[in-house]
């Protein structure tokens, strides 16, 4: 599915250079369900942005499928994001003046699909996240969990092969978090690769593998995880 090969990333702040990702090396196979963990500032979001082709890296190689992702034009990057990748954010990032249905349908707008067709498809995806009756509501009328479901439906509508979620449960209570992770697991079962950045061990426990970052380095990229206790040992 994707492979990182000695990827380095620097942030330049004035004359200062911050080495955020150091020789990051790992591979994720098709259909995996992976958690990325690490302390605050360890570079998780930076990593996810690179994986999502929202950001560029300074050295190394990032392969998405058979494609080397490096210095793509904005247009190309936009098309990859639109067709291959679905994003889920901590703060949902729904457009406030659009209804749930319109929010879900938005990625298809950038595929040039007609409004009627878009809305039809969006309705199916809303149904899938259990929010069919909320199609005409705006985000301000919804709970956090509902908003995240809408966001997940939006991430799925473009039929992506990869879902990238940056702390998708960070703004939710534990019960709602559990439901969202149920949904994520369900999505993963359909064959979509899912990467979740999280601080929450309970969330990580739902995945099949954890990649740990420390100061921009991968300290653990265990493959098939079977030792649950090791997980919980991590604060």
């Amino acid at each position: 599915m994707l492979r990182l090969d000695k990827v380095n990333k620097y942030y330049r702040v004035g004359t200062h250079s911050l080495h955020v990702l150091r020789d990051v090396d790992f591979e994720v196979a098709d259909g995996e369900f992976v958690a990325i963990m690490g302390a605050s500032g360890s570079g998780k979001s930076t990593l996810l942005n690179i994986l999502g082709i929202l950001d560029d890296y300074d050295s190394g190689e990032y392969w998405l499928g058979d494609t080397l992702i490096r210095s793509l034009s904005e247009k190309k990057a936009a098309n990859y994001r639109n067709r291959f990748i679905g994003f889920v954010f901590q703060s949902f990032n729904l457009l406030p003046f659009k209804t749930a249905l319109e929010n879900v349908a938005l990625p298809l707008y950038y595929q040039g699909i007609s409004r009627r067709k878009r809305n039809q498809i969006a309705e199916q995806y809303l149904e899938r996240v259990g929010l069919r009756d909320w199609a005409d509501h705006t985000p301000s009328e919804m709970s956090g969990g509902q908003k995240q479901r809408v966001a997940i439906a939006r991430a799925l509508i473009g039929k992506p092969r990869l879902i990238l979620a940056d702390e998708p449960t960070g703004a939710l209570d534990s019960e709602t978090s559990r439901q969202i992770m149920d949904l994520m697991a369900e999505i993963n079962k359909t064959g979509i690769t899912v990467l979740v950045v999280t601080h929450d061990p309970e969330v990580a426990a739902r995945t099949s593998r954890i990649i740990r970052l420390k100061d921009g380095k991968v300290v653990d990229a265990e493959h098939a995880r079977d030792s649950f206790p090791q997980m919980q040992a991590q604060p």
Binding site: R81, Y110, Q111
Partner: peptide, 12 residues
């Protein structure tokens, strides 16, 4: 930013 993440090109 959201639109771009969802696949909006700069020209769009």
């Amino acid at each position: 930013g959201v639109r771009k993440a969802l696949g909006a090109t700069p020209s769009s």
